[in-house]
């Protein structure tokens, strides 16, 4: 598969990111190859303000590195700094 061809991803947002994105879930078609690239896109087009270095990312319910290649159909969740307890 051409790594830069646009593909469809399922995004889910929580807490501060959910409020900034204005939605809990979002299907996006994107040419972003990695979560890092995807987050830069989202910052530009949805006004997300949390700096990327504060976030972790879970793809298909597994924590992965921000430079992990994304596949079509991936479920991507950017995790803001947690605050349980």
């Amino acid at each position: 598969m051409n790594p830069t061809a646009p593909r469809l991803l399922q995004l889910q947002f929580f807490a501060a990111l959910r409020e900034q994105a204005g939605c809990s879930t979002l299907a996006v078609e994107t040419a972003a190859r990695t979560p890092a690239e995807l987050y830069r896109e989202l910052q530009a087009c949805r006004g997300l303000t949390l700096p990327a270095e504060l976030l972790r990312v879970a793809v298909n319910a597994r924590y992965v590195a921000m430079d992990t290649p994304l596949q079509a159909g991936d479920h991507v969740v950017f995790i803001p700094p947690v605050a349980g307890g």
Partner: peptide
């Protein structure tokens, strides 16, 4: 448990 939970559990508070 509480230390790990505060570090890892994907829970947020407003």
């Amino acid at each position: 448990v509480i230390e790990e939970l505060k570090r890892r559990l994907p829970v947020w508070k407003k």
